[in-house]
């Protein structure tokens, strides 16, 4: 899942860091699998934003796939 999941609207600011979210690489893990994806991330504290579309779409699909591995 080496993919990019940047929402069209990147106009989000991390509070209280006060930083605008920027594209960044995030490590996700689930049932023993680890992979890197591109997500909006706060450059200061590193917190990532998982959008609704991603969570109920591709991410859910991959979760179910991994559970059946």
């Amino acid at each position: 899942m080496n993919l990019s999941f940047l929402p069209p609207d990147m106009n989000w600011t991390c509070e209280p860091c006060g930083e605008k979210l920027q594209p960044g690489i995030v490590e996700l893990q689930y049932v023993g699998s680890v992979f890197k994806v591109e997500l909006p991330v706060c450059p200061k504290c590193g917190k990532a934003l998982i959008s609704e579309d991603l969570a109920i779409g591709r991410m859910l699909e991959v979760e179910l796939l991994l559970e059946d591995k």
């Binding site: 920027q22 594209p23 960044g24 690489i25 995030v26 490590e27 996700l28 893990q29 689930y30 680890v34 997500l39 991330v41 706060c42 450059p43 590193g46 917190k47 990532a48 998982i50 609704e52 969570a55 109920i56 991410m59 859910l60 991959v62 979760e63």
Partner: peptide
């Protein structure tokens, strides 16, 4: 306005 969830763990990120 909306609510969603996932089971994956966000291990860490950097910009």
């Amino acid at each position: 306005e909306s609510c969603w969830s996932h089971r994956m763990i966000i291990a860490g990120g950097s910009a």
